[in-house]
Each structure stands twice: as C-alpha cells, then as structure tokens.
C-alpha cells in the first residue's frame, strides 16, 4: 500500500511560519500505527522530522497530535482505521506554541494542571494501621477520571481554550474531579473555589470535542457536569 502524508514542519532557526511538507511512502502495511509511519519517515526519508514519543503504547501520552483534523495519539491509531485514499494531514496539538515540527511547549498545560492541586489533601491524622482505606464503591467512582494520561489531547481540542488561553481546560477539570470525589480527600472546598472563577469551569460550553479526542475514552463532559452540579449547589 502507498500512502501520502502532509506534515506541518517548523524549524525555529530557519522558518518564520510553519508549512506543510508532502511525503509519499511506498510499501506500507495497513496494520501499521501512525507512529510507525512517522518512524519510517524519520529513519528512512527525513531525519530532521521531530516528534515526541516514549512508550509507544498509549500509556505515556507524549505523542498526542492532530491527525486528519482531530487530536489523537499517533501510537494508538492504525492506518486501516483512517482514510488513506486522501493525504493524511499531521499537525502538532492546536493552541500550544510550536517548538519544532510536531513538538509543542506544554508549560501552559501543566501550569493549569497544577492549579487544581492534583494531590491528596488530608490534614487529619492517619488511622493507627497506617492506611486510609476506601470502599470498592467509592473507588469505582474515580476509576474513569483516574485513567487520564495527561496527553493534552482534550485541552487543546477545546474551542474555549483556542480563544482563551487562561481557561483551565478539561484535563485539569477531570483531575479536579478525581480528588474532589475522593472520600479520603479534604481539599474539595479549596479546589472548588479555584474552579468557580470566570476562567474556571464555567468556560465549558459542552462542545464535546474533548470527549471525541480522549484516547482513553473518558467521558470528560460528564465529569465536568458533575462538578458543575456540585459547585452550583454548594452551601456555605
């Protein structure tokens, strides 16, 4: 199988603007992942192509990119699952500054992640046997939100993020849900104070781009709606 690709290239030392470069690949198998295609280009066609990847199995979340107009992980997308009749367009994640080719600066994304205090807050003394236990039912409520791998596919797919870079974004909101709904956590109120701001949770307009983009199939909007309910019905 032969395929055509359009990849957005940007070299900060030479280029003023990013531009699309065409690649034609021959003898490609349809059970290849998009990441294998990028490897093939980097190893056999153009060694200057730059992209992030670590585990290559959809766990580390470093190869999130915009493939055919949609944010996905290049390592968990097979060629047979996309239209290869037309050229495949590969761009870096939207909204974040491009460092080189498909590598973006994630500082803004992780700043927003840290804002929601993504760690257990509990100031009461631990039980004498040393562990804070949780029932299976309580743990199950967190399973879906705890699947997040911080690939930034959701936050950069959100039209609210494109227009307002201060919007906290779906990834941070899912993380906030994970700790606010944790029965062992005592920091729900301070987190909800952070979310209940103009650039916080209320910039979510239920566009569902994040749900379509999430490679871990988390229903992000459902988690955000639970937070919206909790915040708007909170008593002081």
């Amino acid at each position: 199988m032969d395929i055509q690709l359009k990849i957005l290239r940007f070299n900060p030392e030479k280029d003023k603007q990013p531009y699309f470069q065409d690649f034609n690949l021959k003898n490609v198998s349809d059970d290849w992942r998009l990441l294998d295609v990028l490897h093939e280009i980097k190893w056999n066609y153009d060694g200057t192509l730059t992209f992030r990847r670590s585990c290559a199995h959809g766990i580390c979340g470093s190869d999130g990119m915009k493939i055919n107009g949609r944010n996905r992980l290049a390592c968990s997308l097979l060629l047979k699952d996309i239209n290869t009749k037309k050229p495949i367009t590969i761009e870096p994640l939207p909204a974040l500054p491009i460092i080189k080719d498909l590598v973006v600066d994630m500082t803004n994304f992780f700043d927003k992640y840290e804002v929601v205090k993504p760690y257990l807050i509990n100031n009461s003394p631990p039980p004498p046997d040393g562990e804070r236990l949780q029932s299976n039912e309580d743990a199950e409520k967190l399973f879906e939100s705890a699947k997040c791998i911080l690939c930034a596919c959701c936050t950069t797919s959100c039209p609210s993020t494109w227009t307002n870079e201060n919007y906290i974004g779906p990834a941070a909101l899912v993380k906030a849900y994970r700790f606010i709904y944790d029965t062992r956590d005592e920091g729900a109120d301070e987190r909800m104070d952070i979310l209940d701001t103009p650039d916080g949770i209320w910039r979510c307009h239920t566009i569902f781009n994040c749900v379509e983009a999430c490679p871990k199939e988390i229903n992000i909007t459902w988690h955000i709606s639970q937070l919206k309910k909790k915040i708007s019905s909170r008593e002081y």
């Binding site: 940007f10 900060p12 603007q17 990013p18 915009k66 055919n68 107009g69 949609r70 761009e91 870096p92 939207p94 909204a95 974040l96 500054p97 491009i98 460092i99 600066d105 797919s157 039209p159 494109w162 227009t163 870079e165 781009n209 379509e212």
Partner: peptide, 16 residues
C-alpha cells in the same frame, strides 16, 4: 523562539 498558534479562527475551521 516558538511559533504561537493563536489563530482561533483557523483552529475552528480546520478542526474536525
């Protein structure tokens, strides 16, 4: 020197 992708109109048009 990075390239800021801040054109929300082109983002809206090009995203699926």
């Amino acid at each position: 020197r990075t390239f800021d992708q801040k054109n929300w109109i082109s983002q809206n048009l090009s995203y699926k």
